[in-house]
Each structure stands twice: as C-alpha cells, then as structure tokens.
Design a protein around this nucleic acid. Structure first.
Lengths: 209, 209
DNA sequence: CCTGATCTAACGGTTTTCCGGTAGCTATAA
DNA sequence: TTATAGCTACCGGAAAACCGTTAGATCAGG
C-alpha cells in the first residue's frame, strides 16, 4: 500500500481528523484534507492524490457536483464516497460521474479498508446496502425518468412550502393566479405526486428545499 | 488526564473508530462505544465512564432523550454532545437535560480537546456558534412556546406527508373523516401554520418527519 | 427557420381543505 | 373528585385546491 496517497474532503473537521488518525494508525498515507470543493480544487492544482475520500452530507448536493468535476478534470483520481445515507438520487448521479466506491458512515473500519484495497487494485466497492438500492433502482428506473423542475417551478414550490396559497404566490411573483395554478399543476403532473403536501415532502427529500 | 474514561455513542461506526483513533493518539482513555441508546444503557449497567461523547444526527431526535435519561439515571456521567448543526430545538432540550457541552462536527481536534478538558475540570463547554444560538433563542423564546404534538397528530402528519387526503387517512386509521379533520385543524391551530404544505415543511425542520 | 421548452393565461366543474363551533368518552394527574 | 388532555365525532359554509384542456409569447439550439 506504500505510495498510495489518500486525501479527505469533508466539511466536518472532526470527522476528517478522526478518519486521518484511523488511517494513519493503519499505515495509510494521508496527504491532506479539504473542507470545501473550492479548497479541494486549489490543492489539486498542486498535487493529485491517488484516492479522494469524499463525504457527502445532507445539505450539500454539491458533493456530487464536486465529484463529477474532479472526475472530468482529473480522471486518474479515484473517488470513494462516504455518505450518511443510501439515497438513490445521489447514487445515480455519482455513478454517472464515475466514482469508484460508495460507503455508508455506518460502515466499520474493516469495510473501509476493504473498500480502499478494492479501489487501489483498480476495482470498485459499493457497500451492500447501496448495491441493493442501485439494483432496485435499475428495476424501477423507467417509472421515474429524472424529474427536472424549471427555475420557476422551484420558486413556486419554495413559496408553497412557506404556506402561501395560489393568490399570495401570484401577488408575490406579479403573475396571474391562473399561471401559478398552471405551474402547480404541471409540477404535480410531472412528478406524479398527489398533492402539495406530498410535493413538499418530495422536495425536501430530493434536495429542492 | 489519567483515569478519565471516555465512551462514544454514535450510530456511524466510521465516526466512532475515527474519533477513537484520534483520542487514543492524544493519550485519552476510550473505554468503549455504543451504536444505539439501548446498547448504551446495557453497557452503563456494567461500567460508568466519566464522559460520554454523544453524537446527534439528523434523524434521531432520540439522542436528546437518551441524554436526558442518562442524566437522570447516572447524574455523575458528563455528556459532551457532538452534533451536525446548531438547531435551537435540540439545544433547548439538551441544556434542560443538563449536558455539559455541545460541539459541532465542524470543530477541529483542538476544540475537542479543549471541550474535554473543560468538562473534566468540572466546567462546561459550548462552542461559540452554539452559544450565539442559545442567546438568540433566549431573546425570541417567547414567540414559540414549544409546540407539542400528540402521537395521533404526529401519525396523521406522516400520512399527510405521504400525499393522503382526509378520507384516505380516515380509512387508513379506521376512524371518521371528521376526526381526522379535527386533528388536522388542531395541529394547524396549535402550531399557527397556514396550511398542510406549511405544516409538512415545519415538520421536516423540527424533526417530526 | 422550425422546434421544443418555458412562462404566461384562461375556464368550468368537482373535490377537498379550511374555519368555526360543539360535544361525548376515557384515562390520568392534582 | 374535579380538572385536564387526548381521541373521538359532527355540521355548514366559504375558500382553495385539483383536474382537464387550450393557447399565445418568447427564446435558445439544431
């Protein structure tokens, strides 16, 4: 494992330091860390580690975008995602981006070492829970072909979540009530959700709020 | 610091092991860990550590309840909360429960060591960001006097979030439509929210979903 | 230039929510 | 034993959401 450099990306300093201590105790080489995407790219200009341990928290969907960008600019760098949860939404995009592995934070250090070994050898590692999720997704994929919301629609969802009714939203955006109803209707149509309450929950779970 | 035992409670095994490695590298004594509240209490019957490092994630509000229970049954055990965010909702209850400290995961190891030292010496440590949040809370406290939902109400909110309407919920719970409407009405009344969409958002932000 | 996506707007009818008030039944705590 | 809290249930009217459908304007990309 000598000569295999690991770099940690996470916005939780404590987790970085814990992970670093853990890896060093197991004779891995940790060459640094970054707290944000921009910090990471600054470092990558100077040095390219072999492996990025990338944490994906709840709030920042951008961990996904960061991964995609890294893969585009530095295809040689391997990426192992360490995430809180096995959300399909993230997974799809991450696999599309070409990450080499996906671990849950509930994994233990044995699984972490296994994942790193797999990736170092040129393979991939996706934790079982996650693989199931992927497979399930493959099967049901056709039903939900990636719902994309327009900016206007996202804006209206935000206002709906604030408790505004159609008229208030119309006033707020200086458009007709009919228009707002059209948007609301379109969103429900394209997402296949039942009503606004359902929509708000969906928006939360899919990073739109 | 010799003779001061630390015990970690977290449902993320990786974080536990990272933290353990970090603490051991700094010559602290880590006597064990637990992945859940129930596991913790089983261990506490056998041994009482001096300090609990308690992680509070997003989903499990129960970290708060666990802390309260520990403090009630083992007042001598100190508790240092390590949390993802500085949510007022959690903070209030944790302080009420009597925890000795509150750290964010964005803290570094220096702050962790400082917090542990403070608590070991009989003092308390609340990270600056959190203290601000507390203070801000003191000022605005009067406006939101702690809305408590009954189990039935929580159940109905969950079903509402699934997109069910009143009739479907009534069927699902085997109660009258009128009853469901009463509950929905009461919830909106006691929370002061505008409609169900607003309610779903509120429920998400306050840990009810 | 044509096409597709987006934003805008409208109408009529049905269903559901929202609001207000009222009220009985049970279990539990003061 | 009173309260008090929680769950249950009902009614009627106003307001809003939901549904299906149509359609003009604009603007970016092939």
């Amino acid at each position: 494992m000598e000569g295999f450099s690991i770099f940690i990306v996470d916005d939780h300093q404590l987790f970085i330091e814990g992970l670093t201590a853990l890896l060093k105790a197991n004779n891995y080489t940790v060459t640094g860390f970054a707290n944000s995407g921009s910090a990471l790219f600054k470092v990558l200009e100077q040095q390219q580690p072999h492996l990025l341990l990338m944490d994906i928290g709840m709030k920042e969907m951008d961990g996904v975008e960061v991964s995609a960008l890294v893969k585009k600019q530095y295809p040689a760098i391997k990426i192992l995602i360490i995430s809180m949860h096995a959300k399909r939404v993230y997974l799809e995009k991450l696999i599309e981006a070409g990450v080499e592995g996906y671990l849950l934070k509930s994994a233990d250090d044995e699984e972490l070492k296994l994942a790193i070994r797999c990736i170092a050898e040129g393979s991939t590692y996706f934790s079982p829970q996650v693989s199931d999720s992927i497979f399930q997704n493959m099967v049901t994929r056709n039903r939900e072909p990636d719902v994309m919301l327009t900016p206007r629609e996202k804006g209206i969802i935000k206002l709906l979540a604030e408790g505004m009714n159609t008229k208030e939203i119309a006033d707020n955006l200086n458009i007709s009530i009919n228009t707002v109803e059209s948007h609301r209707k379109n969103v429900l149509l394209k997402t296949g959700l039942k009503n606004v309450a359902h929509l708000i929950k969906w928006a939360f779970e899919n990073g739109h709020l």
